[in-house]
């Protein structure tokens, strides 16, 4: 059982090394979409913020990155205080203004196109969504191809919205605009950059 943690506790114990290790895991995952990368989260944030999402937030967020929290995380004042103390980031309640969205319940979040998509001139000015899911198997299989994937790769993340595949297909079609996802649970994470295109199910069979 988790101890009563305050906002001050549970951050990186070795900030430089911890941030580097978490970043390399995310970078590897982003470079190899649909590949599961393992990293033991070096933080212990207050529930319901999953430690792995707390670790990613501590690594990438700061005063320059407005964040949006889904209702699951947003309703916990402890999570908000912890994030502010450990990252210095500010919150926005407009998904379209956030550079990062932290989503505690992967099965229900606003449509992907409500988040910042970037522009045709600056497609990098788009949101990264860090989403807590249940598991990397047992869900609807997604067969993907694109840069970073040798031939094709399949994952079946459990705990995403029912229409995720359709939404994801639309997101990849907006390229070079579009959002990028980090799916996470336990000690594992998978990245889906906007380049990871779905192979139609009939082709897969």
């Amino acid at each position: 059982m988790r101890n009563e943690s305050t906002a001050l506790d549970g951050g990186f114990s070795a900030p430089v090394q911890d941030a580097q290790a978490v970043f390399r895991a995310v970078m590897d995952a982003m470079a190899r979409p649909a590949t599961i990368v393992e990293i033991r989260p070096p933080v212990t944030p207050p529930a319901p913020l999953p430690p792995i999402i707390g670790a990613i937030a501590s690594t990438l967020l700061d005063a320059d990155t407005p964040i949006w929290l889904d209702p699951t995380l947003g309703q916990s004042p402890e999570v908000g205080e912890w994030l502010v103390f450990h990252t210095g980031a500010s919150f926005t309640d407009q998904p379209g203004e956030a550079s990062f969205a932290l989503i505690g319940d992967g099965s229900a979040f606003p449509d992907l196109d409500t988040f910042a998509q970037g522009t045709q001139e600056y497609p990098d000015r788009s949101a990264t969504l860090v989403i807590a899911i249940e598991a990397f198997d047992g869900g609807t299989p997604l067969c993907l191809r694109g840069p970073g994937i040798l031939d094709r790769a399949t994952i079946a993340p459990r705990g995403l919205p029912k229409d995720f595949a359709e939404q994801w297909e639309e997101n990849t079609q907006r390229f070079p605009r579009g959002v990028d996802l980090v799916l996470a649970t336990g000690d594992s994470l998978v990245c889906l950059p906007r380049t990871a295109r779905l192979i139609a199910r009939e082709m897969e069979v």
Binding site: M27, L60, D124, S126, G148, D180, P193
Partner: peptide, 9 residues
């Protein structure tokens, strides 16, 4: 953060 976006595009 720039590297992650660069990889994604």
């Amino acid at each position: 953060r720039a590297i992650l976006k660069a990889i994604a595009i």
